[in-house]
């Protein structure tokens, strides 16, 4: 098989893993809840709190944060559960036994989750408009769209890192839950990170949702800062996550083969 044929085969694996994941997700109640209902609840809570506190000007911030929480949730939950689901169904070992890299499979599945999670942003904006009459005016629609795509890419690669690490543990589902809220808070999705102690700042910078929130907020008109730094950070983080995923995967595949037990759950 030539390099070109091998690349074409890998792209087919990504495409079909994407489709498979999508086909499976639409039949899952948890996914439907995470993607459709949870963003509504978060928007009601978040925007409601800002309104109750007399800060209606933060409504759009609340909507974007809730949307990103929805995206993150859909991503993290499903990335954690990609591996756990494969473990439960006994397919993880079979995937490892194929000539395709498990990382390529996980990339296709993470991309599928991430793109489906875009729906969360749409739902939060719709909830904000219908319930709180927040106008759907985005100051820089192109910037918003680019920010959304870059956020999506960064979340996919972050999902890939987590999915890869989850290959080694049977507690992927529990870890997913433990990771949820610290990341919401550190990424400034519930309230601005400027309210957090200064020492938490590097942690926030290392998380893609922080920059996604910043980019989308700026594009929506919440601040006058330039969009480019946030875009660059998202690209850099996506690359870093991807490289971490790549290095981790090479080690993890070896560890998984050495330890055995991929069928246990």
């Amino acid at each position: 098989m030539t390099h070109l044929q091998s690349l074409a085969a890998s792209i087919r694996v990504i495409q079909n893993s994407y489709k498979m994941q999508m086909a499976e997700n639409v039949t899952r109640n948890t996914f439907q809840f995470t993607l459709a209902l949870q963003p509504v609840l978060f928007t009601l809570l978040s925007v409601g709190i800002y309104r109750f506190a007399g800060k209606p000007d933060l409504s759009l911030y609340g909507i974007i944060g809730s949307g990103l929480i929805g995206m993150w949730n859909a991503n993290l939950w499903t990335s954690g559960f990609i591996v756990q689901g494969e473990r439960w169904s006994g397919t993880l070992e079979l995937l490892l036994a194929t000539p395709s890299s498990l990382m390529v499979v996980l990339f296709g599945k993470s991309l599928s989750n991430a793109s489906a999670s875009l729906g969360a942003i749409f739902i939060t904006f719709l909830t904000g408009a219908l319930v709180f009459r927040v106008p759907l005016a985005i100051e820089d629609p192109l910037g918003f769209f680019v920010g959304l795509i870059l956020t999506l890419l960064a979340l996919t690669t972050l999902g890939l890192v987590l999915g890869t690490l989850f290959v080694l543990t049977r507690a992927a589902g529990n870890m997913t839950q433990v990771l949820n809220y610290p990341i919401f808070i550190l990424s400034g999705l519930t309230f601005p990170i400027t309210t957090l102690p200064l020492w938490t700042r590097p942690l926030s910078w290392a998380l893609a949702p922080s920059w996604g929130s910043q980019a989308l907020g700026q594009a929506a008109g919440l601040s006058d800062e330039a969009l480019m730094p946030a875009f660059l950070w998202l690209i850099v983080l996506a690359l870093i996550y991807f490289l971490i995923g790549l290095v981790a995967y090479r080690r993890i595949e070896r560890i998984a083969r050495a330890k055995g037990g991929l069928q246990e759950f």
């Binding site: 694996v13 086909a23 069928q263």
Partner: peptide, 27 residues
């Protein structure tokens, strides 16, 4: 490779989708 028992398949997908997916994985 075949491990006995009911596990090792994507239950929410059709039989055809299962085989097609593994065809891609085996390139």
């Amino acid at each position: 490779i075949l491990f006995g028992g009911e596990r090792g398949l994507y239950w929410r997908l059709t039989g055809r989708q299962n085989i097609q997916y593994f065809a891609d994985l085996y390139r």
